[in-house]
């Protein structure tokens, strides 16, 4: 059946649905790098980030997206990281950012 064209379309829902189970690979990342839980979204990592000047890379946002189970852009954004490690010096809560980035970019995602 060819859908009728009414001249408008249904918009996608923006709501984050926390009822959805987080994927296994994401849970594994948190297991392998539990310091991720320390993040409080202060933004110090992004303020100092070299990649952030030119790309969508903001580590605290990767972290937030991971917490909320929003994984579609996770790997792509993490790839912009050049692993310089400045953020790790800046992080007031001692998140092992470089390791977390490595995990996000390298872990097997379906």
């Amino acid at each position: 059946m060819c859908p009728l064209n009414f001249g408008y379309s249904v918009s996608e829902v923006k709501v984050i649905d926390l009822n959805q189970e987080k994927p296994v690979w994401l849970k594994k990342i948190f297991k392998l790098e539990p310091s991720l839980y320390r993040c409080i979204s202060c933004g110090n990592c992004a303020a100092i980030c070299t990649a952030g000047h030119f790309t969508e890379m903001k580590f605290y946002r990767l972290c937030l997206n991971a917490f909320r189970g929003q994984t579609s852009e996770l790997k792509n954004n993490a790839k912009a990281c050049i692993l310089c490690g400045k953020c790790q010096f800046a992080c007031p809560r001692g998140v092992n950012i470089r390791h977390a980035i490595m995990l996000i970019t390298q872990i097997q995602q379906p």
Binding site: F6, G7, Y8, V10, S11
Partner: peptide, 12 residues
């Protein structure tokens, strides 16, 4: 008419 997609999405 162009806004009706927003309208129908709420009903959905």
């Amino acid at each position: 008419q162009e806004n009706r997609g927003y309208s129908i999405s709420n009903a959905k």
